[in-house]
Amino acid sequence: MFRFLRAHGIDPGPTQRPMLAGALAGLLALPPAAAVFVGLGSFSVTAERIMRLPAAATAAILVLAFVVAGVLYACLFRRAANDRGGGWLFGISFGFFLWIAAPVIILPLIPGSAMAAGRPAIGFMGSFLVWGLALGALFPYVHRPLQTDLNTRRKGLLDRFGPSSAVPHHRLLRRQPSK
């Protein structure tokens, strides 16, 4: 599947900075998600009964986690994340899979493996979906101003795209015998 995606041109273009855009979009997508998370009581349950940390520390960890998740989104979707038409779908799918990954992958790592239930559980699902939706929808708009233009020659790019790229990659990689 990944080879299929790569061959279909999912690699970022020469002017793109997807990781930075992912981190920023992940951060910018937080306020609406936080509103759901706090509003349905998920935050207090997470801080007090699941993570058992002060609210500030819990908030800091969650913000960091979602910034990292934004970078992960950019790594996964790469070029496709710039799709203004489909970005919302990629984002909400990513948010959905993060939500279902939480009880399978993340929660078992926590001793006691407590899970949110009732209204806070709805808050968990809602906030992941809202965050993903906002992340995917914002990403193309966040990324555009971060990109360089075609005239910018970044270091190393000419080796990859310039005249010497006429040589097949496997020959470029082969070492010459030392004299």
Partner: peptide, 8 residues
């Protein structure tokens, strides 16, 4: 309840 002690 707001928290479940059961795992998946």
């Amino acid at each position: 309840s707001e928290v479940a002690r059961t795992g998946l």
